[in-house]
Design a protein around this nucleic acid. Structure first.
Length: 878
RNA sequence: GGGCGCAUAGCUCAGCGGAAGAGCACUCGGUUUACACCCGAGCGGUCGCAGGUUCGAGUCCUGCUGCGCCCACCA
């Protein structure tokens, strides 16, 4: 066991200073091995694997949120006695990382081709060792209780083995195939992109109509990509379109090329759009590719991988964006342009990494056949093996799995898992598993492409635990308990993990629960982005407000699937909360709060003691409920209000009176304070681990709150009578304070007063507490009542007379009474209207009727009281 | 083009069939020996609009308006 940090043994300073202790505390936790999981433990397992951040990434608010939630879930389970594993790691992030290193090379005037593949990949590894994974260090600042001994990287040996293993298995099951398809191609990155790596935006273009053919046999088509006409191999019309029926089966001349192309009939064509005739470019458009397949049309590739025209003729060698106006100009010269529509807004795909306009391109790629895998992924959620929180997002999940296209998994990059397929003579193809030797000989070569990054991410829930080996970790911690991630990657990541998890692990789901958090926005609800310059850096908050305040702020805004607007005030509020907890604890400790003595018997407890103990029990249940439901915002709210309103504002104030009484009463109070504080710190620990740890060590002198037990409800039935009396005291105190404030009394000014009716209201014995809380002095010899307030309580009315010695503000009191009277009369009218409605009496539940009746009685009493008081004031003549 | 979500106090949001809530902001008053990162009191809302269901509707239904998000191969 390590020594308790020096700061913690000395007296607690008057404010919580996170910067002074966070790093030291975190190191203690790690050194003590609290975060290390033991697969051989007999306790029930709880496991979360971290959504692996990109190796190029650094901590942003989204991570901070996600991690706060994962840490809270894991810490609570640990305290509950589960064998917990929170596994950290990183993703190699294929395109993103390759781009970073290529940019670095460009600074040296080099390209990856100058280095060659092997040297380039080596360079990326070196980059990773030097500057990658900054985020892992930043996680320590947050206090993430991860098992550092199990850190993983998607490109490390074990995970690469998993990738090869599943590839081979899918290959042999016929679920991976190679095909020539139109894929999304980035002419800048020189690689295929999957659907999800393409971002659509409404861009300005030009829709031009071109006349194909000549004389009698001509037809007008429209396009936004004029240059692709060089690759046209047909014109298509709808089979039922009367206008063109006579042309189907004939040929028209394709301008600029002189080639003759057929007119075909195809259902895909919408006769209502444009002229109802479509140019068909099978090699450069996905729809056209399908039309071409149906009609046996040739696919003519007219562009290379850089987007440069390769078709022989005047346009050869031009970039696609240079060729477009050149082609249009040439057509215009020939009088072929029938119409131009500009600007024409239409949806254009962009590379999500570099924003280059995506070019559909015909090429040979590897695909995963998703239908059977997606079906299984849908079923696992449908039959409840995996639960999605919030439940409404399951609908979107089903939409996705039910309509998924085959997944293009090959990427023309160098950084990533190389496709384990070898090609030999006579079109021989061989898939090589992890323990197999690749085929020998000059005439065999490996596929040059690597796999989509998401391919290895999809294995993360089990590859990190040692799969394909049957390890103790895998046995113990699969399926994972919860996946915590943003709803924005439900589709491309969660679905893929579900597919591969079920496939690799004999139909066992990768996780029991999926918790989807929302997106972080700025104070005005805008998405945070560097270009908008509204990014809040969590490291800045960690420096200025501390880890606990940052975490609490994020947890407080976390509703399932709900976005959250963040602003500075929230962080300050959370910092204040931590400080409130700090000072409340400090007060309790200074007054001898202790957990060394058991709670006194019920008879030795006051109403206030019983009330706060019952409230504490209620809090424990509430916190458990909200935790199980992933309702972090409500959870934080409950803890915040208990701490601030119930514990600090009421119980601590009442406890001061009890401690001042001395003797047994004081001793009992110290035990109650100790119990409540102990419970509260345990409940808060998963959310705000640092401040609670320091305070708890001071309170208990034990080793660490990290491994303390999670609180349980005491099991005693709540004392409803005590609660009613304390609520009476609260109401009375609040009314007297209001009265004092209305009278213009300073809060601290002591004033002589006479309380009457306390016994009748059931508040016998609470006079000292009330008097202390509202600064009342006992009435002396010369007491002269000059102002009074009557407070209607459920048990009866309490009258408070004050000796204000001439400071009475009768006008102010009249105003206040008039206002109260109006409110009471409105209340009376409302309740009577309701009760007077026969249908209400018939149909409303008895409890509701009783409540309304009680409200009416209180209103009547209030009106009588106010009226009497107003008469008295009038009688006094002032 | 399809699908989903949101509109409640100045701001950010909770409430989802039985008296309009919280935090922050704002106003007033405070050396109240735990805390000014605080304490006390207060101001502030025909719950987007229009209909409907119900004894009763921010709360359920329909339509409208305004935002936002996701998906998409209309040239």
């Amino acid at each position: 066991m390590t020594d308790i940090p020096s700061q913690l043994t000395t007296e607690l300073p008057p404010a919580w200073q996170p910067a002074a202790v966070e790093a030291e505390l975190y190191q203690r936790w790690v050194d003590s091995g609290y975060f290390r999981a033991d697969p051989r433990s007999p306790e029930p397992p709880f496991c979360i694997v971290i959504p692996p951040p990109n190796v190029t990434g650094s901590l942003h608010m989204g991570h901070a949120l996600e991690h706060s939630i994962m840490d809270a879930l894991t810490r609570r389970r640990r305290m509950q006695g589960f064998e917990t594993l929170w596994l950290p790691g990183m993703d190699h992030a294929g395109i993103a990382t390759q781009n970073v290193v290529e940019r670095e090379l460009a600074g040296e005037g080099l390209s990856r081709h100058d280095l060659g593949r092997e040297a380039f990949v080596e360079r990326v590894w070196r980059w990773k060792a030097e500057s990658g994974g900054m985020i892992l260090n930043q996680m320590r600042r947050l206090g993430d209780g991860v098992d550092w001994s199990r850190e993983r990287f998607t490109m490390d040996a074990g995970l690469s083995r998993a990738v090869q293993t599943i590839f081979k298995r899918l290959f042999e099951d016929g679920l991976i195939y190679r095909a020539e398809r139109i894929i999304n191609w980035c002419p800048r990155c020189h690689t295929a992109l999957s659907d999800i790596e393409v971002e659509h935006s409404e861009d300005e273009g030009e829709l031009i109509s071109i006349r194909y053919g000549d004389g009698e046999v001509s037809i007008v088509v429209a396009t936004t990509r004029a240059e692709t006409m060089l690759g046209d191999t047909a014109v298509a019309v709808h089979p039922d379109d009367e206008r063109y029926r006579h042309l189907v089966g004939t040929e028209v001349v394709l301008p600029l090329t002189g080639r003759r192309i057929p007119v075909v009939a195809d259902d895909h064509v919408d006769p209502a759009f444009g002229t109802g005739a479509v140019k068909v470019t099978p090699a450069h458009d996905p729809n056209d590719f399908e039309i071409g397949r149906r009609h046996g049309l040739p696919a003519l590739t007219i562009m290379d991988e850089r987007g440069v025209i390769t078709a022989h003729g005047p346009f050869e060698g031009l970039d696609r964006f240079e060729a477009r106006p050149a082609v249009v100009a040439a057509l215009r010269e020939q009088g072929r342009i029938v119409a131009e529509k500009r600007p024409y807004l239409h949806s254009v795909g962009h590379c999500s990494r570099c924003d280059t306009v995506v070019e559909p391109r015909l090429s040979l790629q590897w695909f995963v056949k998703v239908a059977p895998l997606a079906k299984a992924a849908g079923d696992a959620v449908r039959d409840g093996r995996t639960t999605i929180h919030p439940a409404d997002l399951a609908k979107r999940y089903f939409d996705w799995v039910d309509n998924m296209h085959d997944w293009c998994i090959s990427r023309q990059l160098w950084w990533g898992h190389r496709i384990p397929v070898w090609y030999g003579p006579n079109d021989k193809v061989m898939c090589v598993g992890p323990d197999e030797e690749p085929p020998e000989g000059e005439d065999w070569h490996q596929d040059p492409d690597v796999l989509d990054t998401w391919f290895s991410s999809a294995l993360w829930p089990f590859s990190t635990l040692g799969w394909p080996e049957r390890t103790a970790d895998l046995d113990r911690f699969y399926p994972n308990s919860v996946l915590v991630t943003g709803y924005d990657i439900l589709f491309f990541w969660v679905v893929r993990m579900m597919m591969f998890g079920l496939y690799a692990m004999d139909d066992v789901q990768p996780f029991d629960h999926v918790y989807l958090h929302g997106l972080i926005r700025d104070a005005s609800g805008k998405k945070m982005s560097k270009s908008r310059n509204n990014v809040i850096d969590p490291l800045d908050w960690l420096d200025r407000y501390g880890a606990d305040a940052t975490r609490f702020t994020l947890a407080r805004g976390a509703t399932p699937g709900g976005d959250m607007a963040l602003s500075e005030e929230w962080a300050a509020g959370s910092r204040n909360f931590c400080n409130k907890l700090w000072n409340a604890s400090r007060f309790a400790l200074m007054n001898g709060a202790t957990v060394a003595r058991p709670l006194p018997e019920r008879d030795a407890l006051t109403d206030a003691d019983r009330w706060i103990l019952d409230r504490t029990d209620a809090l424990v249940s509430e916190v458990d409920t909200q935790f199980e439901d992933y309702q972090f915002a409500r959870l934080c709210d409950a803890l915040y209000h208990f701490t601030w309103d119930e514990f600090c504002d009421w119980y601590l104030e009442l406890a001061k009176v009890q401690i001042a009484a001395g003797g047994e009463r004081a001793e009992a109070t110290r035990a109650v304070l100790g119990h409540v504080l102990d419970t509260l710190l345990r409940l808060l620990h998963p959310l705000v681990p640092f401040v609670t740890e320091v305070l708890w060590l001071s309170l208990t002198g034990k080793e660490s709150l990290v491994v303390a037990d999670w609180p349980a409800v005491r099991g005693a039935a709540p004392d409803a009578e005590a609660a009613r009396r304390i609520e009476g005291v609260q109401r009375l105190v609040t009314e007297i304070r209001r009265f004092r404030s209305d009278q213009g009394l300073k809060p601290g000014q002591r004033v002589a007063a006479r309380l009457s009716g306390m016994d009748g209201a059931g508040l016998a014995g609470h006079e000292p507490a009330v008097s202390t809380l509202v600064r009342l002095e006992p009435p002396g010899e010369s007491f002269a009542s000059s102002a009074s307030v009557e407070v209607s309580l459920p048990g009866g009315t309490v009258t408070v007379e004050l000796d204000l010695s001439g400071t009475v503000d009768v006008a102010a009191e009249r105003r206040r009474l008039a206002k109260d009277l109006a409110a009471a009369e409105k209340e009376l009218a409302q309740t009577e209207a309701k009760l007077g409605n026969p249908q209400f009496a018939d149909r409303a539940p008895a409890g509701v009727v009783a409540k309304i009746k009680a409200r009416r009685e209180l209103a009547v009493a209030e009106i009588q009281r106010i009226t009497a008081r107003l008469e008295a004031l009038a009688g006094s003549g002032s």
